[in-house]
Structures are given as structure tokens and as C-alpha cells.
């Protein structure tokens, strides 16, 4: 997590610390890492996206109740983890405004793929002063099939079946690779190309297990998890408790 903060800072050239020779000069960095984790998994006709609600700075918990998810349309949710919360808010506010503009100009709600493309463009728009945000867009595509898009900090976009971003990414992603992608189970059938082949209940349970485990090992993931399930009837929101430690 700290590595990532440094990488982004280095990429933009606005690093907090410098390896230059000579006496170290106190250099203000515009980035602060508020951390946290988001993950998403999509099924045949649903998608699940989840994010913890802890907001921390260093070893300090600033708040136990700051969500990381944003409902963008009835069929798309943006989740942001491992983030500088100020950048996340900026992205969310601008994205909400762009959604209204899109509806006014086109008379319809944007498709989830369009939302993902727009997020990508907005991130790349800040290529030389990146938004310190690791984003996932989850929802339903135009055929009603669950979809998940992942981004890197400067907007590189990919459609996947499962995704995890943020401080507990390294803890959760390998488990998802195994359980859902079955990358390490040679005799088991591979999942379909666009989504995983598990039921909604199974997926929600995996999400809960993943966050419970991450909360035990990652100090910046905890408090509560927002678990949102997107299906044809809309976005269903649930809150799941983690430990306060």
C-alpha cells in the first residue's frame, strides 16, 4: 500500500521523499494514503461489489464509517480502494456531474461499459498528476450479464470476472484466483468467459470471508463492509460488520 503511494507519487514526479543526494529537504506531498479495500465479482445475471468503511491515515483511524462505493447508475457501481480519499471524492463528484450531463445530452442512462470508459478517460485526464485511486466498476452489461471493470491509477481498463483493489489486494486476489478462476485447480472446469459460475449467495459468502480474513491481517481494512449486489431490479445494499481493532 505504501509502495503504491510512492509509485504514484514517483510517476507524477511529486514524491514525498526523494533519493537525491544532499540533505533531505522537507517536501510536501499532495498525496495522503487513506487506504482500504474494494472487491467485485460478477455472475451470470448479477454483480457483487464490496468495500470496507474504515478511513485511516498511518496508524490513525480517522473514521469508521466512510464508504467507498458510489452508485453511478441503476446498473453500475464505482468502488474505490487504496485511495487518497480527497481524490476519490473529486472523481465521484465529477463522475456524478458527467452522468447528469450524459442523460441530458443523450436522453438515456449510460451503459456500464460507457461508465467504465468514462472513468478511464477521467483517470487518464490526470495522467501527469494522477488521482491516487484504485477503481473497480461493477454492474450489468447491456445483455444483463454481470460485469466488472478494473483500472490502474491512470486509467488502463480491463473487463474481468473478479477484481480486488486496495490495501488487502495481495491477501484477497490469490484466493479469488483459486476459488473463482480455478487457476490452481487443473481438473476443475474453468469459469465461462465473462462471469463466474457461482450463485449469488456463494459469491456474497466468499466476499464476507475475504473481508473477514483481510481484516485480521491488514490494519487498514476493518470496521464494516458495504456489500452491494447489482441485479436487474437495481442495487441492493447490505452492511456486514468487521472487527474494530
Amino acid at each position: 500500500m505504501e509502495t503504491m503511494s510512492r509509485d504514484v507519487a514517483a510517476m507524477s514526479g511529486y514524491g514525498a521523499s526523494s533519493a537525491a543526494a544532499g540533505p533531505t529537504m522537507h517536501q510536501w506531498s499532495p498525496y495522503v494514503m487513506n487506504s482500504g479495500t474494494v472487491m467485485a465479482i460478477c455472475g451470470k445475471d448479477f454483480a457483487v461489489i464490496a468495500g470496507d468503511t474504515r478511513m485511516s491515515v498511518g496508524y490513525q483511524i480517522q473514521s469508521r464509517n466512510v464508504g467507498k462505493l458510489l452508485k453511478v447508475t441503476d446498473k453500475a457501481v464505482l468502488g474505490t480502494g487504496g485511495h487518497c480519499q480527497a481524490d476519490t471524492l473529486n472523481l465521484q463528484k465529477l463522475l456524478r456531474a458527467r452522468m447528469v450531463q450524459y442523460e441530458h445530452q443523450n436522453g438515456k442512462t449510460p451503459k456500464t461499459s460507457a461508465v467504465a470508459q468514462l472513468v478511464s478517460q477521467m483517470l487518464y485526464g490526470r495522467r501527469f498528476f494522477p488521482l491516487l485511486t484504485k477503481n473497480i466498476v461493477a454492474g450489468l452489461d447491456e445483455d444483463g450479464v454481470g460485469c466488472v471493470y478494473t483500472f490502474d491509477v491512470v486509467g488502463c481498463l480491463e473487463r474481468v470476472r473478479v477484481a480486488c483493489d486496495g490495501s488487502a489486494e495481495e491477501l484477497i486476489q490469490p484466493v479469488l484466483d483459486n476459488l473463482l478462476e480455478r487457476q490452481h485447480q487443473q481438473d476443475k472446469p474453468k469459469p465461462p468467459p465473462l462471469h463466474v459460475d457461482l450463485s449469488r449467495e456463494d459469491v456474497v459468502n466468499i466476499v464476507k470471508d475475504a473481508f473477514t480474513s483481510a481484516g485480521e491481517r491488514d490494519i487498514t481494512t476493518g470496521d464494516h463492509v458495504d456489500i452491494w449486489v447489482i441485479d436487474a431490479s437495481g442495487v441492493h445494499q447490505e452492511k456486514f460488520d468487521l472487527k474494530y481493532d
Binding site: 499532495p30 498525496y31 495522503v32 487513506n34 478511513m55 490513525q60 480517522q62 473514521s63 464509517n65 466512510v66 487518497c84 480519499q85 480527497a86 471524492l89 473529486n90
Partner: peptide, 17 residues
């Protein structure tokens, strides 16, 4: 930084600790 949230009780600086 522009960080922004609401809560029932808040503290800044060393008061956070």
C-alpha cells in the same frame, strides 16, 4: 488535501490520537 467526511464526533491534529 481536500479529504471530506461526516461523523458524530471528530478531532483534528493530536486530538485525533
Amino acid at each position: 488535501y481536500g479529504t471530506h467526511f461526516e461523523d458524530n464526533f471528530l478531532a483534528t491534529g493530536l486530538g485525533m490520537y
